[in-house]
């Protein structure tokens, strides 16, 4: 393992999670907690949604549609489609972590921990660590995120009725700006091209097909970006 310089994966994972993701998760999950409260979920249910779904956009779809009184299966399918991005994300991340596991069944636990947040951070950490240290980094990062997210969900649920509307709105907005900043940090040509095309294609495809638009836009944009710059190798971010 002498080719890898960093030897504090667990500490680095905690440290990385406790800076930007902490601020964003706190904001986003307070927003979700408040939304869940208004949608008729109790505190325990809101916390379970945070831990078990572990993907804020899907959680917002769940709370929004539940409040609107949508059909059970329509809600489940909508949440599933909102979270379809975990298929390419898991495929992209797992080969970097698999080598650090004794039992391959643990891949399912790692896959459950994946989110937009941890996806972007683990890919940035891949060049720094050996596979086993990547698992340590990832675990430390996600466990801190889970603790922060649960506390914020509870806080948002309790504070829901006292929040000024502009502030509650800000808590929903923080997620968008966070994803935008993390994406803006990309440096590899195929990834930058995929992001720009995806950002344009996303709303357009959503108008054409509200249920599948985001996925279709992602496949088109990612494929275009990948093949436009196929020769350009480098770190994914």
């Amino acid at each position: 393992m002498s080719t890898y310089k960093h030897l504090h994966p667990f500490r680095d994972g905690l440290h990385d999670a406790l800076v930007l993701p902490m601020v964003v998760l706190t904001g986003g999950m307070i927003g979700f907690g408040a939304l869940a409260q208004e949608s008729g979920f109790n505190i325990l249910e809101a916390v379970l949604a945070t831990i078990l779904i572990w993907a804020l956009p899907g959680q917002i779809v769940l709370a929004d549609m539940h409040a609107a009184g949508a059909n059970t299966w329509a809600i489940v399918i909508a949440v599933s489609i909102a979270n379809l991005r975990f298929l390419p994300m898991t495929i992209a991340v797992m080969p970097h972590l698999r080598g650090g596991l004794k039992h391959q069944a643990w891949q399912l636990a790692l896959a459950q921990m994946l989110s937009a947040n941890s996806f972007l951070y683990i890919l940035q950490a891949v060049p720094r660590f050996s596979p086993i240290d990547r698992v340590r980094y990832f675990t430390a990062f996600v466990l801190s995120c889970v603790v922060i997210a649960v506390v914020a969900t509870v806080g948002g649920h309790i504070a829901a009725s006292q929040m000024a509307p502009a502030v509650a709105m800000g808590f929903l907005f923080v997620n968008i700006i966070f994803i935008a900043c993390l994406l803006a940090n990309s440096r590899a040509a195929p990834i930058i091209a995929s992001i720009i095309i995806g950002a344009i294609a996303g709303p357009v495809c959503h108008l054409i097909s509200p249920s599948n638009g985001i996925l279709i836009a992602g496949i088109i944009a990612g494929t275009a970006g990948h093949f436009m710059f196929r020769g350009h190798r480098g770190s994914p971010s």
Binding site: I219, A221, G222
Partner: peptide, 9 residues
């Protein structure tokens, strides 16, 4: 690339 593009979309 697809995963990043889906997040951007």
């Amino acid at each position: 690339a697809v995963a990043y593009a889906v997040l951007a979309a």
